[in-house]
Simulated assay, not measured.
Amino acid sequence: MRYRLFGRTGLRVSELFLGAMTFGEQGGVGAPLPECRRILDAYAGAGGNVVDTAINYRGGASEEFLGELLHGRRDRFVLATKYTVSRDGADPNAAGNHRKNLAASLETSLRRLRTDRIDVYWVHMWDRHTPVEETMRALDDAVRAGKILYVGISDAPAWVAARANTLAEWRGWTPFAGLQVPYSLLNRDIETELLPMAESFGMSVAAWSPLGGGVLSGKYTGGSPARGGRLDGAQISDHDHRVAKEVQAVADELGATPSQVALAWVRSRSRAVHPIIGARSAEQLADDLGTLDVELPAEAAGRLEEATGFAPAFPSGFIAQTSPWVFGESNQRLDVP
């Protein structure tokens, strides 16, 4: 594991981040506490030091698990969590990026994580109903109070992040040091505006879903799906299957696994990019960590990119829309344009 600075700060962060969205069994897709301990220990043993969660992951169990797992070694990790998503669907102020929700969400996360500070506090997604000035000033107040050390923004348009950091620069507030967005061979939209913007502002980029939702992990390359049909019980397009097959071919040539190749490609795109790896077992995590030993030749990277057929276009499809899951049912009655 190698380390880089987080944005334009002196904070050292490992080149791979650990995503804790799988910590907890709520919803039937996560991992129990003993397995989460094995995952965290394996990640730390490989030199990883950034653990990323959110107030809503696994109904709050993710933060609670981490609070227990980090006991006695909290300072060895860069602990990151997020706020925005609703804490109570019946309360219109229990969601969004406004000051009231930030204060309540932050206290909830601090209590669950059993800590007095959050190392990196992410705005989980753009809230078009809250002025960005309010969000940036509220974040800066929390930094000055010592409850947050650094801030970042997730799933927002480039113009929002750029405006926020310009305001912070002008007014002496804490700027966003990191950007968290989806990035993989199947989703290269950030290369159009978000990645150049982040590089210009010196922001680190935490790339979630670097395996394209699991499509690039190798589990869909055992056969050919019917056109627009299903493979191994999952829907997969002809385009995605073509890219997955090329990833498998490169993996076979390099003696690596498809997951390792897909992660190696994301790592190779920019020094600003840090893939977020998540796992439901220590064995799965170990496979992902194997990407640290994979050197992706330029010729192989070119073949992978050619398979994507990517053409520059404005980012689309990942900016969260107002929904009951995100902002709570009461926000559907919010009387604003």
Score class of each variant (00 low, 15 high):
residue 248 Q to L: 12
residue 142 A to N: 04
residue 223 G to E: 13
residue 126 W to S: 03
residue 87 R to Y: 08
residue 12 R to M: 10
residue 150 Y to D: 02
residue 73 R to Q: 14
residue 199 E to F: 05
residue 25 E to T: 15
residue 319 I to L: 12
residue 86 S to T: 15
residue 51 V to C: 03
residue 78 V to R: 00
residue 303 R to W: 11
residue 211 L to K: 03
residue 156 A to G: 08
residue 239 H to R: 15
residue 320 A to F: 13
residue 256 A to S: 14
residue 158 A to C: 05
residue 301 A to D: 05
residue 275 P to E: 01
residue 71 H to R: 15
residue 13 V to W: 00
residue 6 F to E: 01
residue 32 P to V: 13
residue 196 P to C: 09
residue 3 Y to M: 02
residue 301 A to Q: 06
residue 240 D to V: 02
residue 169 E to D: 14
residue 60 G to H: 02
residue 184 S to F: 08
residue 208 W to Y: 15
residue 107 E to W: 07
residue 202 G to C: 12
residue 195 L to A: 08
residue 35 E to F: 09
residue 211 L to Q: 04
residue 202 G to T: 11
residue 151 V to F: 03
residue 102 L to N: 00
residue 125 M to L: 13
residue 287 D to N: 12
residue 306 E to A: 15
residue 162 A to D: 06
residue 117 R to L: 10
residue 203 M to C: 05
residue 148 I to A: 12
residue 164 A to K: 05
residue 227 R to T: 11
residue 146 G to P: 07
residue 46 A to N: 03
residue 100 K to V: 15
residue 110 L to M: 07
residue 196 P to R: 10
residue 12 R to K: 14
residue 248 Q to K: 15
residue 208 W to M: 01
residue 45 G to P: 04
residue 278 G to Y: 02
residue 24 G to I: 14
residue 152 G to F: 02
residue 325 W to L: 14
residue 181 V to C: 01
residue 129 H to I: 12
residue 236 I to A: 13
residue 251 A to T: 07
residue 19 G to E: 00
residue 220 Y to A: 10
residue 163 R to M: 10
residue 163 R to S: 12
residue 140 D to I: 06
residue 281 S to G: 12
residue 190 I to P: 08
residue 328 G to Y: 05
residue 127 D to H: 13
residue 198 A to G: 07
residue 336 V to M: 09
residue 6 F to W: 10
residue 62 S to D: 01
residue 296 L to C: 04
residue 118 I to S: 04
residue 203 M to E: 04
residue 30 G to M: 04
residue 252 D to A: 14
residue 293 D to N: 12
residue 184 S to D: 09
residue 28 G to N: 15
residue 9 T to A: 11
residue 62 S to H: 01
residue 143 V to G: 09
residue 127 D to I: 12
residue 12 R to G: 04
residue 91 D to P: 05
residue 116 D to C: 08
residue 88 D to M: 09
residue 229 G to A: 12
residue 178 G to S: 15
residue 158 A to R: 01
residue 162 A to W: 04
residue 14 S to L: 00
residue 1 M to L: 11
residue 278 G to N: 03
residue 255 G to M: 10
residue 77 F to V: 02
residue 46 A to F: 04
residue 67 G to A: 05
residue 144 R to S: 11
residue 300 A to S: 13
residue 282 A to G: 05
residue 165 N to M: 07
residue 163 R to V: 04
residue 85 V to I: 15
